[in-house]
Amino acid sequence: MSASFGHSCCAVISIPMRGEDNSRCPLDGWHALGLMSGTSVDGLDVASVCFKQDPQTLAWSFTMNAFATLPYPEALRDQLWHAMTLGAEDLMRLDTAWAEWTAEEVEAWMNRVEVSKPHVVGSHGHTVFHRPDEGWTCQIGHGAVLHAHLGVPVVSDLRSLDVATGGQGAPLVPLADQMLFGHWDVALNLGGFANLSMDNATGTRVAWDVGPANLLLNRLVQTVGLDMDRDGAMAAEGSILPDLLKSWQALPFHVQTAPKSLGREWLEQKVWPHAEQALQAHSLNDVLATAVAYASWAVARDVPIGSRVLVTGGGACNPTLMAALRQATLDRDVTWHVPEETLVHGKEALVFAWLGLLRWLGQPNALPSVTGARMATSGGALWGVGPRGL
């Protein structure tokens, strides 16, 4: 499935880097591959995308040529879920194993769907730890291994440079929200965590994580051996637990000012203990209903009145969660738009293809107004050659 979108806006500021070239866009565009493994460990999202930049306005547009979610084998999925508990050597083995599995599966997928060989691959990898307050973040998925197997330039470790310059290293997607999807007032991603992206009153792009979404919902149903609450059916049968909801809403994160971001360790340490306690006295359906109310509250409180909101991520396909969002904003004239399924599930992989391309071209790929970094940077480790073959 292909989808073309364009948006004219201010150009991305270019920072030339030695050995790389900000040359004009080829007539048929730059072909990039994006790889994204989310905190929910649902599978590997892969997007083949053609990007074009107008030589006069420098506005970007794209065509998504193909998208898929490649399911993880059960053993690898289990390793990824427990990665934060591994010792150093086992984590390094997983770093390589993920890249080897990914390279093999992606190459087979590219052959099946017959997409063009990419100029560059942008790989987010899989987040194990995210500690920007301590000056570090960890996404596994060795870029050198991907490059060696795929034979094309690979950009990985896209968050670390922003963290090193004082930023959160997240969210990174808002640059694309501004440049590729700027015709929407707000972009909402309902992934493992929910995050919002929008322009503030001065026209500066701001974004932040607001709270847990699919990661909490999936974590709850895993207690009974399920992967997910499909369509939010179990949550729809439950009743909201006021005390549990208040305990989550009272977490200090919710009164912090942006920029701010979340990692799975925050959920495990701050959110999950309240859920565990509630499960001892209440039904799973009631705790799920409360988790949906919590997620919708965290999102709705920060969405401006009258906004047109683009909603992507797996949570956009959860009718119970979407109904809760609409109910929470009934008096605020908010329009929630869920696009075609390819964009719902493939937006983050598409964006990391573009962020990898920007790094390859030597252009900034993180917004300091969003992350809090001291400067705009072109982040990511580049494995292989740049556009000039250097």
Rank of each mutant, 00 (worst) to 15 (best):
A176C: 14
G203Q: 03
A201D: 15
L216E: 09
N218W: 03
T204G: 08
M198D: 06
A194H: 12
D231V: 04
D231R: 05
P273G: 07
M228C: 07
S247L: 00
L220S: 11
F253Q: 06
S197R: 02
W248L: 08
V224C: 10
D209Q: 09
G182D: 09
P212F: 07
S197E: 02
M228L: 10
L220F: 13
V206K: 01
V206S: 00
L226W: 14
G203F: 02
Q222H: 09
W208A: 15
D227Y: 13
P252G: 03
D209E: 04
A176P: 05
D243L: 04
K260H: 00
I240N: 12
L215H: 14
T257S: 08
A250N: 13
L196N: 01
G263K: 11
W266M: 01
F193A: 07
A258N: 08
F181E: 12
A194N: 07
N189I: 00
T257E: 08
R219W: 12
R230K: 14
L241Q: 10
V186R: 00
T202E: 15
L216S: 04
L180R: 10
L220D: 12
S239C: 15
K260L: 02
S239E: 14
S197N: 00
L262N: 10
S197M: 00
G211S: 05
Q256G: 04
D209S: 09
E237S: 14
G192F: 02
R264V: 07
R264K: 13
M179W: 12
L180D: 08
A201H: 15
G232D: 05
F253K: 04
L262Y: 08
